[in-house]
Structures are given as C-alpha cells and as structure tokens.
C-alpha cells in the first residue's frame, strides 16, 4: 500500500492537467519576411483594387501649377528658389490665414531638390517637400531672432544655410551686421518679432535648442507643401511663365 500512496499525487496532478482547457507555449520561431519582387509576385486582385486610386493620384500629381522660364536650383547662400519659398510662406499666412508675420525661415536641408524649367507640377512640389512639415509661427525677442539667424549662418553642419523672407541681412565674418525688415520695422534686440518656420525647426530639430525660450508659438495645422502648392498655383493664374531672380536679401561682405 505504500506504493499506492506515493503515486496518488502524480495521478491527481495528471487529472488536474487534463481538466485544464488552457495551453502553454512550447516552441517559437521567427522570420522577418522582406516584401519585394523576389519574395512574392504581385497579387492581381490587390493590384486591381489599387489601380483607380493610383490613376487618380497620378492625374492629381500631374497638375501643372505654373511654368518656369528657368530651372530653379536650390543654392546657398541665396537663390531664387529659396526666396520664392520663404516669400510664399509670408504671402500665404497673410492672404489665407490673416496673419502678418515679420519674416519667414526655411531650413535649407528641408528643401530636398530644385524645380525644373518648364511645367511645375504638384508632384514637383512633393519632390521639393516630401516631408509633412507644418507651418508654425514663433514670436522671438530680437536678440533671439539674431541668434536664430546667425545659427544658420555659422552652422558647421550646413554653412551659410540661411534661408529667409521678409528681411535683408548683411553678414560679415559669420555675424549679422545689419537686419532690415521689408515691412518697415526696425530691428531692436528688445522688441519681439514673429517668424514663420517649419515645425521641424520650431520643435528644435537641427540643433536650435534655444528656441525653447520663444515668447509664443502658433500652429496652423497646415503643411508647408500645401502652402507652396497654393502659392505656385496662384502664380500660374497669370498664364505667364515665371522668371524669378534673387533680390540680394543676403549679402556676405
């Protein structure tokens, strides 16, 4: 009887186990499947599903906004493209949002490519601005505005990468010797000024940590790309090709 006693416990354990409906993990394996033409052919049903969306998308992207008489290459320290884009921000804010900002800024690295000579399409603007950066307005004290502008002048990663609208600056030895607003305001380190910019910069991307001390911030929930598309579409309404030039807003002495 001694034997029986010893083995009653395992028997009960087995019965209990059998009554459990639950499961436990005994093995696992993993595979990361790369999705490409080698891994799998296209699913024809899915291709048929996507086709009408794609077709209409292509049509939209092909809409010609304006024709340019010249290629608009991005360049430093000043070029017609940089000027057009920053002017577009100021004009859009004023006309569509009713906000008169003192100046505008774009991060040079965020302008991904130039615009072609000939038709400028919506797709072209997507190539210039593939990211969904948004238009933001910061209110900065004059002293911080100077620091902000000089940050891009001095930037080691991207030297002389200042892209601005609404102001004319003179740079000597990487220091701004003159800041003049085109709206007639005079620069005073103790006054405040409104600056339109990308949310990427306003969120202190690219090393502009000092912007945490901005006086105020306004978000518009509007992508820069939409601002530019609207601007170029308006330029195209005249029916004439555009032939933009630089205006000397950045002078390096």
């Amino acid at each position: 009887m001694r034997l029986k006693k010893t083995f009653i416990l395992p028997v009960l354990a087995l019965l209990t186990t059998a009554c459990q409906t639950g499961y436990h993990l005994t093995n696992q394996s993993y595979k990361r499947v790369q999705v490409d033409s080698l891994a799998a052919p296209a699913d024809s049903g899915m291709a048929r599903f996507l086709q009408p969306y794609k077709q209409q998308l292509d049509q939209t992207m092909n809409e010609v906004l304006v024709v340019s008489a010249v290629p608009l290459e991005r360049a430093k320290p000043e070029c017609a493209l940089n000027n057009l884009l920053t002017d577009a921000m100021l004009q859009y804010a004023q006309q569509k949002v009713g906000v008169s900002a003192d100046c505008s800024h774009l991060n040079y690295g965020g302008i991904r490519t130039g615009l072609p000579k000939g038709p400028i399409r919506i797709g072209s603007i997507y190539e210039v601005m593939p990211f969904d950066n948004q238009l933001v307005m910061l209110t900065l004290k004059g002293s911080m505005l100077r620091q902000f502008l000089e940050f891009f002048v001095k930037s080691e990663a991207d030297e002389q990468s200042l892209v601005v609208g609404g102001i004319r600056v003179v740079i000597k030895d990487n220091v701004l010797t003159s800041i003049a607003f085109t709206n007639g305001k005079t620069f005073d380190p103790n006054q405040t000024y409104t600056v339109l910019m990308s949310d990427y910069i306003a969120n202190r991307g690219g090393g502009t940590a000092f912007l945490k001390d901005a006086v105020a911030r306004k978000d518009f929930n509007l992508t820069l790309r939409d601002v530019f598309i609207d601007y170029f579409r308006q330029l195209g309404k005249s029916g004439q090709p555009i032939n933009p030039t630089t205006d000397g807003r950045i002078t390096i002495q």
């Binding site: 186990t17 459990q20 499961y23 093995n27 993993y30 595979k31």
Partner: peptide
C-alpha cells in the same frame, strides 16, 4: 518587412521550470 512569429502551444499548464526561462526564438 512582414514580421512572422510561429508559436506552438501544448494543452495543459506549463511546468514552472519551462515557464521561468525564455522559449528560444
């Protein structure tokens, strides 16, 4: 990529010994 994790389960409670260490991936 598509992530793929294949799991094998067995009915019943796991023993404490297997439970307390990772099932190898």
């Amino acid at each position: 990529y598509l992530g793929r994790i294949d799991l094998t389960f067995e009915q019943g409670k796991a023993k404490v010994a297997t439970d307390s260490k990772a099932v190898e991936v």
